[in-house]
Design a protein around this nucleic acid. Structure first.
Lengths: 332, 332
DNA sequence: TTGAAAGCGCTACCAC
DNA sequence: GTGGTAGCGCTTTCAA
């Protein structure tokens, strides 16, 4: 079913059909009705590839995230989807599984689809990829992994600040032995988070002893990290997790080893995903405004919106959300 | 950057460039090298719209799910993505938020993109939409909501059986007051699940009293349903949840009201999402093999695979997974 | 082994 | 208000 057939059926030219389908130009009301009726009876829907090719644009925004299993990324997607939809755009998600090769393929695919804009919300990145994206001249928004450049918008979260807040809070509760649970990734932003932890802990001049354990980004990964931690002999009174998703596994594994949280060990997360309210005990965490991030991303990519433009560099401060997984350090 | 430029740079025709890019026909090795080098230096990547338009096909599979926040759907997506990727296909997800209007739009959009195949994994459906999909003549696989037809593959889970197993198990533990927590949707498959519960409970000739409570498909929705339940005055000794995702909220809310699970109240989920191992207590549930479903879906849509074809109707039996959220009914 | 050229289905510009 | 038509960038015969 093509435009042509519709045009024939309605007794008009393809140009006219195109006009009514896109609400452009002026079409006599009776013709419009005729066309619409032909569309309906023929059950016509446009070939979007032809449309995008001819128009030179697509009303799709591309989003690429690390791990769709982690609700953090899903939340960003949902927020973007809602915002984009409101402007008549679709959002197309790709995920990388934290693999640079997949990132590369995803970017390629999205650019190949001539997306109107690109949102890159991942933990992995490489210089040449940034260059390639820049060369594409598509408006792009990065979360954490970008750099200043023409057409680039960078949204960053101050992890050091957030981690500092968590560590400081734990310190104030008397904790002096802390572990950091992170996920595998030799790449920059993860380093950033681990470094942030080390930096925060370092603030206390050796008063705080620490250890780092890693696992995949999942509850199972969190559990695995705890096991490793416990086997190592280091017995933390507090565990700082790189994110809530892993913290879920940390809480569970701690319980499995008969540690009570927070009586024996305190735990903090990061992100404030909605599940963090539903863990047992409810998770103390740092909020990252996914909703706002998603909206800003869309606004940055579709600047036609009426509201104020998004500056090229946005810095977000995570806020501590106190729940029940943290408490005074046990005596001993 | 277009094929043309690459061709010029390499001193060949666009046809030749196309050949090397698609590994088709025969190209002299030296020419191939020249082309590849031009591609590299020009940083060329193909316009996928042009490609799909000219080729009349796209190597994309469309997937449409109800709610990406629910890990069940993410799991199906991941499984399909992995399987599709292995065959050189992408999968494009859309989500409906349980809204028929969005389903309609999503199907339209996917068909408009001339996807190689369509997977519909949702809870809502309408006759005319089925007809429209059928008219598109695209291979389509449905989860639960399809009907037998040319080009259609239907994968179904025997909810009644699963629910029966849960209820029977609870009955055997002495439970005689059961509640069903489901999510809003006046639509067929949800009815199916509720009806399944009513049917299972009915087996015992009035020996089991029951109540149904509904909420959105989320932990918060589960919590809300529990609140409603408790307010109603009906005090179940067991809560059967429509899925694990809502059960997470049920567990939490019960605890918030000082009920101990399973000592005071038993809880069952459905799906066996990986989070169900990490709840407290770990959730007794019914397994639905998302991985297998995703793989079958891809196999059904891309029948070029070497393995045995997928029959047009597949029936899956959910299996009871016993964990810690169920126990003997309290004496009362 | 390679090139020329006819589309794929649609949009958008220019006439009428 | 409406139609004719030139592309959009690629694939794919058909010839050479």
């Amino acid at each position: 079913m093509t435009l042509d057939k519709v045009a024939q059926r309605a007794g008009v030219s393809t140009a006219t059909v195109s006009r009514v389908l896109n609400n452009q130009g002026t079409v006599k009301d009776s013709t419009r009705r005729r066309v619409l009726s032909a569309v309906k009876t023929l059950n016509y829907y446009p070939n979007l590839h032809a449309r995008s090719l001819a128009g030179g644009k697509s009303n799709t925004i591309g989003l690429i995230v690390s791990n769709l299993s982690n609700p953090f990324f899903v939340d960003v997607f949902q927020a973007m989807d809602a915002a984009a939809r409101a402007s008549g755009y679709d959002v197309l998600v790709e995920h990388t599984d934290y693999q640079v090769s997949q990132l590369r393929a995803g970017v390629r695919s999205l650019l190949g689809k001539r997306v109107a804009g690109l949102a890159v919300v991942v933990s992995e990145m490489e210089e040449d990829l940034l260059a390639e994206i820049q060369a594409s001249e598509r408006p792009t928004v990065f979360y954490d992994v970008g750099k200043p450049a023409e057409n680039f918008t960078n949204i960053r979260v101050r992890y050091e600040l957030g981690t500092q807040r968590a560590v400081q809070y734990l310190y104030s509760l008397g904790h002096r032995r802390m572990a950091f649970v992170g996920h595998h990734s030799a790449l920059s932003p993860l380093h950033v988070r681990r470094e942030a932890f080390l930096g925060a802990v370092g603030t206390y001049d050796g008063a705080v002893s620490w250890k780092v354990a890693l696992g995949p980004d999942s509850p199972a990964g969190g559990a695995q990290a705890v096991r490793e931690l416990l086997l190592s002999g280091f017995k933390p009174s507090a565990v700082v997790c790189v994110n809530d998703y892993m913290a879920i596994g940390v809480l569970r594994e701690l319980r499995a080893h008969n540690y009570s949280v927070p009586a024996d060990i305190s735990v903090t997360g990061f992100d404030n995903i909605s599940l963090s309210e539903f863990t047992h005990p409810a998770l103390t965490t740092l909020n990252i405004p996914r909703e706002a991030i998603g909206q800003m991303a869309v606004k940055a990519l579709l600047p036609d919106q009426a509201s104020a433009p998004i500056p090229p560099e946005v810095l977000l401060e995570p806020e501590l959300v106190l729940r029940d997984s943290t408490g005074p350090a046990p005596l001993s």
